[in-house]
Write a protein that binds this DNA or RNA. Structure first.
Lengths: 357, 357
DNA sequence: TTGAAAGCGCTAACAC
DNA sequence: GTGTTAGCGCTTTCAA
């Protein structure tokens, strides 16, 4: 199988411009040690021949590939889509290519860490949303390139992530401040080893309750497989069938919150009158559905990760254990409100007193 | 700036195994002309040294990069996420890397076609969702690698796409069959030059109406910027303020349909009792919100594109103008129903007679 | 079945 | 400023 077509080489350009390949190389890399006249001739020749430098050949000698690799669990999630969409322009501005390794299940994962295909093929690796074992981390340590951990923190390694604990804490406090006393936490079980911050957010939930002197009731913590309509109904059902059902549900992420909303709508339980619902992420759909939520910015995460990677490429020792922690913000919308007084109890008796803005 | 770390080379492996680099190369590529004993020694040496072949060096001599490039307008849409998520495993199985060029606006687009950074850096290019000008297509023609057009058809070039006209036709016919006579079409304006099949779907809508002997009323065709809550409200408002408002709205895609649903809910117009809403795509959210829609499969598109690309890499002449057209399916759910009889008209008088399953 | 040698297209060090 | 030279790490003849 021959290559589709022969590309012109630097030698072709050099010949056409009547100079040496070194001069062509210097010109095309924008080095200032080329006289304007020669520069013009070379650039014209290159344009006429439709010449493009072979990154392969260049990187063979420079030792740099001009490529950023990213390891991601999926490409079809709001988070990854947003993060990569913001990453791309930053890379492009730096003249780097984007190489995606999507590793969706445990088998692929094993294969990836076994072969480490990114080795020698990128200048840095961004690892998104993986709960790595110690062996996996160690494996990445001798990948021979800077590795940045995104959406997770790994001790002693450069990481970029949002403060999930604080975010979940804010969320829960908002509900407490509204007067809720029975607050449920719903989260997705997720594939083992693929971190979507579930644990941290549960931590924040617990922390806020404890701070407020409220008990943590395990019955109020429910789990469902991700993106599972039936599973979510069951989880919501577990809450609705409690002796003392919650007046508010904090969902680990907007996707789940939306599924919960649609379940509640099916049985005509009014939101927020009967039950408040609060999400986490602030994806576009949250605004559309008027869902109260905690905003995080995957775009900022993507950009921060890129910047950190650039620093580390230039100086691998620059940020051994540098951590970039990004903030979250509560966005109150229409799905949270003070709880209505329980039946048989006069409003004045209830704990329902909004202290929130 | 030195590379982070020196990688072992084939020479290192060769020395350790006591053979020549040629033998190492042959072994690692799985050529059968290596004796088992030697093969074992080489493989062990490679493993011990954590050796990985440099694609750069290899492709310099083979002329193949082992990389598939994709040109996409965004990474944060349901369509692109799904398509790329299905593409990735196929590439991985073929031992190819995935290189993403995200070109989001017209400036970036001009730069991309000016420099064609994919040139020499990939074995094939998949162009997603771009409405290309003739010059742009011509430019890609001498990129020196197979180019596959995805989600669009370009004359005489290999393409993969769904039959949008037929899909929109099915959608509209479903509404007609339910008894609707005033059927609106809502679509997004989109950025010029980035095709999201808007035009084709409008065509299908018109075609179905014409087939049924119904007039095409331009007042019933409304436009809004994509993902724009306010713009969508205005568009819906235009429909609701007509002398004779529609009893059904067919939206160009689910995202828009959802925005329309949320607008209708705000003003308490019941769906489907008062107005039926029908989408296009069948993304996950459609199922969650019980939205009737026309299903397409970006995953199938991604896989088909990859297969076509492989064929063309092996034999560039294989499919000059091969077109893969994928089907769509109507998924009736809870947001479409026969129209209720208009006020002041007895049910028997109205055109509302369900002929649909 | 294996090894020696040439060279893929480029950059970097050093002359001039 | 510009050209010459020597590789970068592989694969691929070709000989043995």
């Amino acid at each position: 199988m021959p290559p589709a077509q022969r590309h012109p080489t630097m030698a072709d350009v050099a010949e056409r411009a009547g100079v040496s390949t070194s001069t062509v190389s210097r010109t095309l890399r924008g080095l200032s040690t080329v006289s304007p006249a020669v520069r013009d001739r070379v650039e014209e020749a290159a344009r006429e021949l439709n010449f493009a430098v072979s990154r392969q050949a260049a990187s063979l000698v420079t030792g740099r590939t001009g490529t950023m690799a990213v390891l991601v669990p999926t490409l079809s999630s709001w988070f990854m889509g947003s993060a990569l969409s913001s990453l791309a322009p930053v890379l492009r501005a730096a003249g780097m290519e984007l190489n995606v390794y999507m590793v969706g299940d445990l088998a692929e994962r094993a294969a990836f860490f076994e072969r480490l295909p990114a080795r020698r093929n990128a200048d840095a690796l961004l690892v998104f949303c993986f709960d790595l074992t110690d062996e996996e981390t160690a494996r990445l340590d001798d990948l021979g390139m800077p590795v940045i951990y995104v959406s997770q923190h790994v001790e002693g390694r450069p990481s970029v992530y949002v403060d999930d604990v604080a975010g979940a804490c804010k969320a829960t406090r908002h509900l407490i401040n509204l007067g809720h006393r029975r607050i449920a936490f719903a989260h997705t079980s997720g594939v083992r080893g693929f971190s979507f911050s579930s644990g941290e957010r549960l931590l924040g939930y617990r922390q806020a309750l404890t701070e407020a002197g409220m008990p943590v009731d395990d019955e109020l913590i429910v789990t469902t497989p991700p993106r599972d309509k039936v599973g979510t109904r069951r989880a919501v059902g577990n809450l609705l069938s409690l002796r003392e059902p919650p007046t508010a549900i904090f969902a680990e992420h907007d996707e789940l919150a939306i599924l919960i909303l649609s379940t509640l709508r099916t049985v005509r339980i009014e939101v927020p009158e009967r039950i408040s619902v609060l999400g986490f992420d602030d994806q576009l759909m949250a605004e559309w559905l008027d869902l109260s939520t905690v905003a995080q910015s995957p775009s900022d995460i993507g950009r921060a990760a890129a910047e950190l990677a650039f620093d580390l490429i230039d100086d691998p020792e620059a940020g051994r254990g540098r951590h970039v922690v990004l903030p979250t913000h509560l966005i109150p919308r229409g799905t949270t409100s003070p709880p209505s007084a329980p039946p048989g109890e006069r409003p004045a008796d209830g704990p329902a007193e909004a202290r929130d803005a």
